[in-house]
Simulated assay, not measured.
Amino acid sequence: MIAFGIAVIAAVHAPQALAWHDDGHRIVGEIAERNLSPATRAKVRALLQGSDGKGDGSLATASIWADHEARESPEFAFAASSHYVNLDGPTSPRELHAQCLERAGCLATAVPYYADILRSEGASEDQRAEALRFLVHFVGDAHQPLHAGRRGDRGGNDIDRLTIPGYTAKGETTNLHAAWDGALVALALTERGVDWKAYAVALDAGIDADARARWVGGTIYDWLEESRRFAAAEAYLHVDGLTPVRSGDTLGADWYRRNSSTAEQRLSQAGVRLAALLEAIFEDA
């Protein structure tokens, strides 16, 4: 599947708040933009370009803002807990909402919050553009299984010292959370010999009409429960589906093959659902 010894991609030791790394988020944004109607796409681009027209207006570019400019600014320190939620089992919307309020917010509260700002007639254009940048990022976050991972290991962050041939550089290791954030996408790009945009185009082309129809709908609670189930059934396990991944393990080609289709599905679902959410928000704007 992959020439694991040929291309070595430097490992990224991601903190818990990062998801999909930049390329994964760009892929979600690109898929979403490809699923927007021309009218909504024009409104989104105009909002992201701003009054000075300097931005490129793309959802792909907007998708990484929350992990870079926002993360580097003390002004947005409040949003750190909004990138993830830890779930140890099925949780009702009421229970999850209460849990999020206890820790100054989480993904379950962030997505509807920024969606409300984006549709608000009282919000300024700058506030709506900021909300859109957060929203495109957080919808992507919600679909990374370990962003709804277990509390005890901080969504896989504490399962560390992992070696991934073809991803971790010689002498470097990573953790399970970061493996899902970055390795599965990076290895897919290496295998195919393409960049993130070509990969996004291919993923979008592979989504059939039935899948699109099934994926549209649901709420942030549904999406997070999906991620929690994927994490429990796949993300924490080796290829046999029984043995837990433990600190110090090596995740090889069989691990990639077992999990790459799930990663592709979650990226695709995030893009399709983001597009549907933006269509609903901008319908009357």
Rank of each mutant, 00 (worst) to 15 (best):
A7T: 11
A11M: 06
H13G: 05
A17F: 13
L18K: 14
D22W: 06
G29I: 04
E30D: 14
A32R: 00
N35Y: 09
S37G: 15
A39H: 08
R45H: 13
G55H: 10
L59F: 02
A60Y: 01
T61Q: 10
W65Q: 06
E72D: 12
A77R: 13
F78P: 00
A79M: 04
H83V: 01
V85I: 15
N86D: 14
T91R: 10
R94S: 13
E95A: 15
G105Q: 06
L107K: 09
A108W: 01
V111S: 03
E125I: 07
L135P: 07
F138A: 05
V139N: 02
G149R: 03
R154N: 12
R154P: 00
P165F: 02
Y167N: 13
K170I: 07
T174M: 10
L176H: 05
L189A: 10
G193P: 02
K197C: 00
A198D: 11
A202V: 02
A205I: 01
G206P: 08
D210Y: 04
W215R: 09
G218W: 10
Y221V: 02
E225V: 01
E226T: 11
P244Y: 03
G252S: 06
Q269F: 02
A270K: 03
V272M: 01
V272C: 03
L274H: 05
A285F: 08
